[in-house]
Write a protein that binds this DNA or RNA. Sequence first.
RNA 1: GGAGAGAUGACCGAGUGGUUUAAGGUGCACGCCUGGAAAGCGUGUGUACGCCAAAAGUGUACCGAGGGUUCGAAUCCCUCUCUCUCCGCCA
Length: 423
Amino acid sequence: MLQIYYIREYSKEVIERLAVKNFDAAAIIDKILVLDAKRRNIQKTLDDTLAESNKAAKEIGGLFKQGKIDEANVMKAKTADLKKASKELGDNLDSVSSELNDLLVQLPNLPHPSVPKGNSDADNEMIYEEGTMPELSNDALPHWELAKKYDIIDFDLGSKVTGAGFPFYKGKGAKLQRALINFFLDRAMDAGYTEFQPPLMVNEDSGYGTGQLPDKEGQMYHVTMDNLYLIPTAEVPITNIYRNVILKNEELPVMNVAYSQCFRREAGSYGKDVRGLNRLHQFDKVEMVQIQHPDKSYETLEQMKDYAASLIRALGLPFRILRLCGGDISFTSALTYDFEVYSGAQKKWLEVSSVSNFENFQANRMKLRFKNADGKTKLAHTLNGSALALPRIVAALLENNQTPEGIKIPKDLVPYTGFEFID
RNA sequence: GGAGAGAUGACCGAGUGGUUUAAGGUGCACGCCUGGAAAGCGUGUGUACGCCAAAAGUGUACCGAGGGUUCGAAUCCCUCUCUCUCCGCCA
């Protein structure tokens, strides 16, 4: 959520910058400015009325103490009007505030100046590419066929037991999952992150804090009986640890990492582009979250970007990094780098990580603050990134590393799998 | 799921309708004292939204959350959440 004072001061700039995200904010900001002025006006009147009431109540108390009952009763009668007025003003303030808030949450985060204009993923800016493309023979198999050939992932069984998008991993396939998770977590420890195991369900306040609610509830599985949501990413519980928290300056940066299963409804997304592991309803991901001083958050974003790259490099996969354009970047993000690995048999780039700086957008929603060096309370910046999401990494590993002897496991991963080939 | 007891500031803790303007203590910060430190003494010490050009100042709200009663609520009433003790169930 953008800060109201910022919209008030720099409304023109806000409109211009949101245009990069193809968001026309002019009308909504007009309404916000009107409501904001109204809100402050009502609050002033209400505060004055309450001040008068408080004063009268004290006087009445004093009169009772002195035994001046009649005078007290006269005063009491006078306060009736004040009470009525403050009740009305209070109701009015509540409705104007919530109207204002409903509009504020509709505004996306301001994109960083480096975010290119654009309408779709075709307009994303490729900023880096690394690795050698796999040279596969013409009869190379896509990963869903390799999965069947080596009996390591069973999509049909998942469909039977749960539904499409919920595969079973089996034998060396299951072990490969565990190996990747531990590999990613151990690397994160070495990089200075603290590991968390979060709850896989969160309450409404948490969904709101990271921006999934109120708009995107259709993308989360909802446990209606207890009003809990299955997390779409560990970002949600891990960031919400700091909801309504004021950190000390020296506690920054907070560097957390968590493995979790992630649940996404992604309604209506079936078809040939989502075959196999390309898009699942349940998948595994290791997620890093940082909370940083506003002056340092972009430096941190670059470090997180480099860190994600180092993981893919260690697995020997060709990859590229994109700076997302205004049309493709998320609602809450100011700047996002997407990582894609090349999956040789599908001949497709697959997104395996997304690293973003949210600046104070999430922090403002969840009231995540810190005391700066001067002792002033300020909103912190939040960042997160996948490090990494498993399914598409597995897809690329299977496809790119297929050999007549089986699927070759990258060297750095062998200590974790305990085998060199899936055969 | 059932019964009971609780939730007060950074922390401990007093407070059952009216100088609570939340006592007292601890911690922390600054100052005095000291060769330096400790002790001692003194001062200060939350959050949010307003008002004010701004600072200073000042208004309002906040004692788990949300409602209510009252001229006046930390205190009384209702609902909810969480914690503890016991019972039930349970990997």
